[in-house]
Amino acid sequence: MNSVAFAVIAIFTLVFAVAAATNPRLMHAALSFAVMFVGIAAFFFLLGAEFVGLVQIFVYVGAVAVLIVFTILLTRRDAEERHGFKWGGVVVAIGVFVGLVWAILKTNSLPTLPYLVKAVTVKEIGTTLMTQDVWPLMCVGVLLTAALIGALVLVMEDEP
């Protein structure tokens, strides 16, 4: 059953990722982007990291996607007109993909363990955040505050 679920989620995620990357209509692409993150969150659920999946949905679908659609709305005059599409990017992307797959298949040292979910509990994450990773946590707090202030300063209108 897990492999069926896996295949379904994989197809779902990749289809929406392609839609987000190539759909010429901005708003549809942004919404596909949001749906793609639901697929990635489902992967995290499959891999036993429920907390991360939920955070992913919370941050990306709830916040980042809303930010993106608002930005599209605020720059709407530009959204309608045609933007260019560089085919060079497609070549590079396919090249990178082929290279990565080749590297993955050639590597022998990868653990070939069977798929056994070892779920992580919220409590473990919380304990680690408050003991081992407390300094990174503080840094992220400062970074988020700085980003918040920076974003506000950037979009603030100049005084007339």
Partner: peptide, 9 residues
């Protein structure tokens, strides 16, 4: 809350 936040979209 994660599910609730998708309502905005």
């Amino acid at each position: 809350f994660a599910v609730g936040s998708t309502t905005e979209l």
